[in-house]
């Protein structure tokens, strides 16, 4: 028996969410009295792979095959399913990010394993297997019972945390069998922005709404994000107007995020917007309307024009940084 965790890499590197996944898988393995096995697909240096051991992976399997350099849903499903069978895994853990969402459903069907997506806590019991997951886009949680022997879980990012357990780990190469049928899609072109903090990874997010009036007024949002090492986001009307790209839209139909700090400037806080950001640990609201619903969701509020408050806030952060 084992718990298998798929750890995606980004240009050969892991990130916080990878370590959170391994920590989570390791805690489940402890509940089941079994071992934690991490699977890495693609080229990752040994030093980097070893890091997974610090969070509880006892064995790290690496699959290095040039055909699986980019995500191919069928092929990755084959790799993960074969690994699960080889390691007799009863629980498979993935992230609830783009690739986890692409793979988990296929793995579930391939292995006849019940799937719980967007889980946000350890199982409350393992027999029966019951786990809490997000539902109704952050407006509620559901406790899901998985009846199958094998289980697939996708962990909601930044909902569990990191636990360093510092055990020893071994690295093993694995060569799965892949057929032409696994490669019916092809990546033709990749475009990537580098050097920017990703919205889904950011611990601090600065977000602007219609209250900022026009695309030209985004300077302070970007400046504050850069100052705090955060990412920029926006509300739906802003992306619909084309002031900001769709990839920045946070809310029910955009990105669902859970940073440590979310600063909403000029956002009134429609229920659909709050659904996407209410899992943030702390919310700061800046709005001229004291009755705006965003203040009900916020921890700290400033009643005022974001275009005046943001520059003052930037100055205050600069002063604070200079003193620190």
């Amino acid at each position: 028996m084992s718990v298998l965790v798929y750890t995606e890499n980004w240009d050969g590197k892991f990130k916080k969410l990878s370590f959170e996944l391994v920590s989570y898988a390791h805690e489940i393995a402890k509940m089941l009295g079994t071992s934690t096995i991490a699977l890495s697909i693609g080229n990752v240096e040994e030093d980097e792979l070893k890091k997974l051991g610090d969070y509880g992976a006892e064995k790290i399997l690496k699959v290095e095959d040039n055909r699986v350099k980019n995500l191919v849903n069928s092929a990755y499903t084959s790799v993960i399913a074969q690994t699960a069978e080889k390691e007799d895994a009863t629980v498979i853990v993935l992230s609830n990010n783009n690739s986890g969402k692409a793979l988990a459903p296929r793995i579930s069907v391939r292995l006849k394993a019940g799937l719980a997506s967007g889980v946000a806590a350890l199982p409350s019991s393992t027999d029966p297997f019951v786990v809490k997951k997000k539902a109704f886009t952050g407006k509620a949680f559901a406790n899901v019972k998985i009846n199958s022997n094998m289980k697939v879980l996708t962990l909601f990012q930044n909902s569990f945390g990191i636990i360093e357990s510092g055990g020893s780990s071994e690295i093993e190469a694995f060569t799965p069998e892949l057929s032409d049928n696994d490669f019916r899609t092809e990546v033709k072109e990749i475009s990537k922005v580098t050097g920017k903090v990703l919205l889904t990874d950011a611990e601090i997010v600065i977000s602007g709404g219609r209250g900022l009036k026009s695309a030209e007024n985004w300077g302070p949002i970007e400046e504050l994000a850069e100052l705090l090492g955060g990412a920029t986001a926006c509300s739906r009307p802003v992306s619909d107007e084309g002031w900001r790209p769709h990839s920045e839209h946070t809310g029910q139909t955009g990105k669902i995020i859970a940073p440590n700090l979310y600063i909403a400037a000029g956002i009134s806080g429609a229920i659909q917007h709050l659904a996407g950001v209410s899992s943030s640990k702390f919310i700061v609201a800046i709005n001229t309307d004291k009755d705006a619903p965003i203040f009900e969701a916020a921890d700290y509020g400033v009643i005022g024009d974001a275009q005046k408050v943001l520059p003052a806030l930037i100055e205050a952060v600069k002063e604070f940084k200079a003193e620190a």
């Binding site: 579930s108 019940g114 559901a142 406790n143 019972k145 700290y300 400033v302």
Partner: peptide, 18 residues
Amino acid sequence: MTEYVSYELPPAKAACKM
């Protein structure tokens, strides 16, 4: 393969500090 056994609402937020 799965069943929903129960639901919870997120804990209520403390009042916003102005």
